[in-house]
Write a protein that binds this DNA or RNA. Structure first.
Lengths: 255, 255
DNA sequence: GGGCATAACTTGAGCGTACAAGTGGGTTGG
DNA sequence: CCAACCCACTTGTACGCTCAAGTTATGCCC
């Protein structure tokens, strides 16, 4: 018996993965048209509505384009990007054929920073578990991660094998299911501490991603301040007119 | 007769706008549940499928959350963000209750830069129309925009009233319909030129958004390098597990 | 009054249909 | 030979239905 496959993902998601695979494997080359929705529907034995759900997701990612009356076309120069930002650094690195690495510099229980308090919805002076990790790509420093976990979740992390696997996977195995996350992206100058750890000059530009992660009940569980070397990582998004894109440009809150 | 309303947007988009309005107007407050899909469906006189399309879009934006069996809940602290990144700087500023401004520093026809050539799919040494604009928010410098337009489109821009309205609107009125755009976000240090125009120090961190815009035929029309003051603007995205988010983390191409 | 099973309600997933709108190819007529 | 036309095909939108899975409220029993 296979090791507990778990529940199958819904059909439209399976189809989405299958199509992604055919594109990245070169079976459906860039610039060429896909079979029509009707053809896909009969090939996979699902309804057109389900096919459309899968195609819509791929269209939103920019892998496919084309309009009414035209068959969907594989976007030229589109290297299939089969993952979401929500995936852990570890998984992401593997998908890019890079060897992820990490050095956990600190795991500490302490009073939450003002930012973390606000993001996690905790009262002033509440305790959290802070983790400071340096992330590597092929042995090179790529990102500095400062996470704060709510106390009940963070407590588990003292048992976390810091050198392997992802925190998300670790928590999932312990029954804590993260459900959604909110990311804010901006740029900051490297602080003296940042610079020392990342091996760059103080004041060098870093790409910052601040993340608040929620569990399925809607409670904020993690707040993280990740600082990327912009030469090694950036973010990318596709959007179409009419379709409102989930990335928004915003003013930082006045402080 | 009203001044040419044009074709109505599809029903599910109208519904989406209506719901957004009710949330931002405070009629449906944060933390409270929305009416059930069935109730909405009968109130608006559309099918549940259409209601679900609208709700899904709002859920993807993070305005709503809640799972199977639970009525959708308005996310607390969610200030309705009724616009996409695709909207012009001008429209975005208005939506934020800020007075947009701009100084057009240069409109020139010249040989395309290597980056623009690559992004627009032009042969080496092809000509483009470059526009350099400083964008202001309430009179303060906020962003520096370096756009390159394909020649046939760019030609029109010499007639563009540089001090008012948006380029997108201008082009739309002339029958050029931009359809989708691809954005790459990273951080850079301000060059000497950047610093001088924006009034900051050389080497200060800037949030960079590089954008390639395509028309409905799939041809790249514009390439732009926008550099934001991170203190005045940042980007934000919401995603949920399972649902693959359209924002991806990626390695910059090796140069 | 408290605890528990159950029923009613709600969302997620999927199928089927119908028609409108746009594309593209083939045919026909000048 | 070319142009205009028409028709088949494809996607976009919208409707309806069914069932499964999860939540919530009800009401019953002890």
């Amino acid at each position: 018996m296979p090791p507990e496959t778990g529940p199958q993902p819904p059909l439209h998601r399976q189809l989405e993965a299958e199509i992604r695979g055919r594109i990245s494997s070169g079976r459906w080359r860039a610039g060429t048209s896909l079979p029509s929705e009707a053809a896909l529907s009969s090939e996979f034995g699902v309804s057109r509505g389900t096919v459309r759900q899968a195609l819509t997701a791929l269209r939103d990612e920019g892998l496919l384009f084309g309009g009414r009356g035209r068959r969907p076309i594989v976007r030229s120069g589109a290297k299939s990007q089969p993952f979401s930002t929500f995936l852990s650094f570890t998984e992401w690195a593997h998908a890019q054929n890079l060897k992820p690495g990490q050095r956990t510099l600190e795991v500490a229980r302490r009073e939450a920073s003002a930012e973390a308090c606000c993001a996690l919805g905790l009262p002033d002076g509440a305790q959290v578990v802070d983790i400071l990790r340096l992330r590597l790509l092929d042995g090179e420093a790529a990102m500095l991660e400062r996470s704060s976990f709510a106390l009940d979740v963070g407590r588990l992390l003292f048992d976390f094998d810091a050198e392997s696997g992802s925190v998300f996977e670790f928590l999932h195995e312990r029954g804590i299911s993260l459900d959604r996350a909110h990311h804010t992206i901006d740029a900051v100058a490297a602080s003296t501490a940042d610079a020392q750890i990342l091996g760059i000059g103080t004041g060098a530009p870093l790409l910052r991603e601040r993340r608040t992660t929620y569990d399925s009940a809607g409670r904020a569980v993690e707040y993280s301040d990740d600082r990327y070397l912009p030469t090694l990582t950036n973010f990318s998004i596709e959007n179409r007119v009419g379709r409102s894109a989930p990335l928004v440009r915003q003013l930082p809150p006045r402080t």
